[in-house]
């Protein structure tokens, strides 16, 4: 088949450049990395290619433990995300969990529409459509589709934080060692992270009420 390998070669070449540069800057870089990880942050974000957490936070490898899925959804019965949360909280003892939604989210947009997305995505996005139903009045009062999608993304982040708070290990870590939960929205058009609730903001930080 006539599929060009250029795209793949680019990644391979990109990795070689990355490895060379990182070693040039700090000959011990990979040796240090190999000894283990102790990230302070667990990031739960969207799989969307435009929101690379470590890049947009100008962080380094080793800083952020990551779970990314369609529309940064957290469902209490999702074993994949629960395992990530459990591992990060119990074993890595992260200090903060960030749930980050974003503007122009394809998942939020899809949940606002009534198209049949096939059995897999219909099921995955069911909780988002449920949120849409619950907040129908508010969403319909918004002027355009982008604003509706942002609002649904915000509601979804809040719901994910609720799920997190009910996670037994998380609630224990909140009480015992001061783990904090944070909701954010990444504004793609501005390239900036925004705290979810400006009204409750302190020091550029929004902490979910316990």
């Amino acid at each position: 088949m006539g599929l060009s390998l250029d795209a793949l070669e680019r990644v391979v070449a990109g990795n070689k450049i990355y490895a060379r540069k990182a070693t040039e800057q700090d000959p011990q870089f990979f040796k240090t990395l190999a000894t283990g990880q102790s990230p302070e942050i667990l990031w739960i974000g969207c799989a969307d290619s435009r929101v690379p957490e470590t890049t947009v936070c100008n962080c380094q490898p080793g800083d952020i433990f990551v779970h990314r899925n369609i529309a940064n959804c957290l469902h209490a019965d999702d074993l994949s995300a629960s395992s990530v949360v459990e591992y990060a909280t119990t074993h890595l003892k992260v200090k903060r969990i960030v749930v980050c939604g974003h503007t122009k989210c394809g998942g939020a947009n899809a949940a606002l529409g009534d198209a049949d997305l096939g059995p897999t995505l219909n099921t995955w996005l069911l909780p988002l459509r449920e949120l849409r139903r619950k907040h129908k009045g508010e969403l319909e009062s918004l002027a355009d589709d982008d604003a509706k999608a942002v609002r649904l993304a915000e509601l979804n982040v809040q719901q994910s934080l609720d799920v997190l708070r009910k996670h037994p290990t998380v609630s224990k870590a909140i009480n015992e060692r001061g783990l904090t939960l944070h909701g954010m929205i990444f504004d793609i058009a501005a390239g900036e992270l925004r705290v979810l609730d400006q009204a409750k903001k302190g020091n550029g930080l929004w902490t979910a009420p316990q």
Partner: peptide
């Protein structure tokens, strides 16, 4: 993998918008 030491975009030199990402425990 969710491991903090392997941010996909950085280690491949790809920019924002170039790679759709899923990360879980042990890339299952």
């Amino acid at each position: 993998c969710s491991d903090s030491r392997i941010p996909a975009e950085q280690i491949t030199g790809l920019g924002a918008g170039e790679v759709f990402i899923h990360r879980n425990i042990a890339n299952l």
